[in-house]
Amino acid sequence: MIQIKQIHKSYITGQNSLHVLKGIDLEIKAGEMISIMGASGSGKSTLLNILGILDNYDSGEYFLDGVKINRLSERKAAQLRNKMLGFVFQSFNLVSFKNAMENVALPLYYQDVPRKKRNLIAMEYLERMGLKEWAHHLPNELSGGQKQRVAIARALIGKPKVILADEPTGALDSTTSLEVMDILQEVNATGITVIIVTHEHDIAMRTRKTIRITDGNITEVIVN
């Protein structure tokens, strides 16, 4: 599903250049569930952003489902993100003025699915998350766990091949964290590749494989 070869990435700030990724090689097969761990500044988020086509890389190669991802136009990148990828963020990143159902339906909106149809589909996904009665609530009326479940529903609605989760439990208490991880495991069970960036051991332990990144290099691959 995902193949990256010798990915390098530097950030240039003024005169200083910060070499964040120093030649990453990684292959993730379809249906895998892996976690990426590392200290702050190790480059794990940067890697995730490159995987999510939110950021460019300097050199190397990245194939997503056989498509070479390199300096795509913004339009093409947006379409690929919409079709192939689902994002789950630490801070949920729900759109504040849209209710839960509309938030979930957002990716379909960008596919120009008619409003009635996409809202119907969104309701299905909310029901799967056990949030049917919360469909018409705005994000600020939902708890952290509920928000993250809405975010996961939103990530799933476009039927992506890969779910990218950046510290999905970082803002949640431990009980809710477990719930969210249960959901992600269920998602993985349907065949969707799940990649989770985390620095929590318990979370990493629940994935099948953990990749540890230190100073821009993969230093360890642990099969749990």
């Binding site: 947006a78 993100r81 079709k83 476009g158």
Partner: peptide, 13 residues
């Protein structure tokens, strides 16, 4: 940030 979210979800320029 909001526009960033929309673009991450697939909003074209």
């Amino acid at each position: 940030k909001e526009i960033g979210i929309q673009r991450a979800l697939g909003a074209t320029p």
